[in-house]
Computed example of a mutant assay.
Amino acid sequence: MKKTILLLAITLSFFNCKNDSKKDNSKLNVVTTTTMITDLVKNIGGDLVSVNGLMGSGVDPHLYKASEGDVTKLVNADVIFYNGLHLEGKLVEVFEKMKTQSPIALADGLDKSGLIGSDYFASNYDPHVWFNISYFKQFAKKVTQVLAEKNPENAARFTENEKNYLQQLEALQAKVSSTIETLPKEKRILVTAHDAFNYFGKNYGFNVVGLQGLSTATEAGVQDVQKLATFIIENKVKAIFVESSVPKRTIEALQAAVKSKNHDVVIGGTLYSDALGNAGTIEGTYIGMFEYNVNTIVNALK
C-alpha cells in the first residue's frame, strides 16, 4: 500500500499540469470501484460515458489494493464513484491523497439513522447498503446529479436514463417481495460466508448469520465454526450458502462440522454478495444478481 500511495503522489504531481482534454470529448471518463456501481453508472450514463471499473467479477472489495494501472485510471478520471463506509478499506488512503478528482462516496448521501451499525469498519456502519434496493435508488439519483453537473448539455438524457432505471428497480422490489412471500417466516434463516446480507435480512425478515462477520478480512476460527454448526442444528437450517467473492472452503468446513455432529446441511448454492457475476450473464447486472440471489435462497430453504 505504501508503494501504491507513493506512486499515486508521483503520478498526481505529473498530471497536475495536464489539460482537461479527453481522448473522446463527447464522453465523460468515469472510474468506479465495485461491480455494482459500475453497472449503475453504465445504466445512467449510457453511451455518454466511458466507464472503467477497477474491480471485476468475484473480486472482494474489502481486500482490494490499487494497482499501478488503477492509479493511472484514477488520475485521468473526470469522475470517480465509490461505495464508501470503508467497504473499499485499502483504497481509502489512495482516495485521501487525491487533490483534484474528489472521489464521490455514494453512501455518504444516505441517512445514517437508517444504517446498520458495525464495529468492523472505521465508518461504524455496515457498508453493504446495495442490498437495500431503496438505498440503491438513492445511489442512482446521486450518480445522475453528478453526471448532469459534469455534462450539462446531456442532463436531460441522464435524467431520462435514471427514470427508466428507477422503474426497473421498482419492478425488482415488487418481484423480490412476491418471491420471498412464498417462503415461510420460520424458514428465513440465511447462513453465509460473511455478513453481507444484513440490509437484505432487515428488509425481508431474514435472520442473517455470517461465518466471518461483516468483513472478509476477519478470519473465522474453529470456535466460530463449531458455534455456528450448533446454531444450524438447533434451528433445523436446511441449507447454507457460498459467496462468489469469498473462498468456499469456509462454508465447506461449516458443512463438515455439522455432519460431524450427525446432522446434514446442504450447500444451497452460490450467492453474489460483494461483486456481481461475469459480464454478459444475468448475474452480471445488479438487477439480475438480486433476483438470482433471491431465487437461490428461497428455492434452497423451502
Results as ranks from 00 to 15, higher is better:
Leu54Gly: 12
Lys112His: 06
Lys141Trp: 03
Ser26Gln: 13
Ser21Val: 11
Lys141Gly: 06
Lys236Asp: 14
Ala105Gln: 11
Asn154Met: 05
Ala171Ser: 11
Leu214Ile: 13
His128Val: 05
Ile189Val: 13
Glu181Asp: 15
Ser134Asp: 15
Tyr292Cys: 00
Val51Ile: 04
Ala140His: 07
Lys150Gln: 11
Thr4Glu: 08
Lys142Gly: 06
Asn154Ser: 12
Asp39Asn: 09
Asp274Leu: 02
Leu12His: 10
Thr34Ser: 07
Ser215Cys: 12
Leu6Phe: 15
Gly53Lys: 00
Thr72Gln: 15
Ala193Trp: 00
Lys3His: 15
Thr11Ala: 12
Leu91Ser: 08
Ser50Thr: 08
Ile282Leu: 15
Leu40Asp: 08
Ser273Gly: 11
Ala193Gln: 00
Lys175Cys: 09
Lys142Arg: 14
Ser26Met: 07
Lys27Asn: 12
Ser178Val: 08
Ala174Met: 04
Tyr120Glu: 15
Lys112Leu: 00
Leu48Ser: 14
His128Gln: 06
Ile287Leu: 02
Ala257His: 00
Ser57Trp: 05
Asn235His: 12
Lys163Ile: 02
Leu110Asp: 04
Gly213Lys: 01
Ser118Val: 01
Val143Asn: 03
Ala9Thr: 13
Lys97Arg: 13
Leu63Thr: 11
Asn83Ala: 10
Ala122Val: 12
Lys261Thr: 06
Leu172Glu: 03
Ser13Trp: 05
Leu115His: 10
Lys248Glu: 10
Lys27Pro: 02
Ala107Ile: 03
Val59His: 04
Ile80Cys: 04
Leu169Phe: 11
Tyr135Phe: 13
Asn161Cys: 03
Lys42Cys: 05
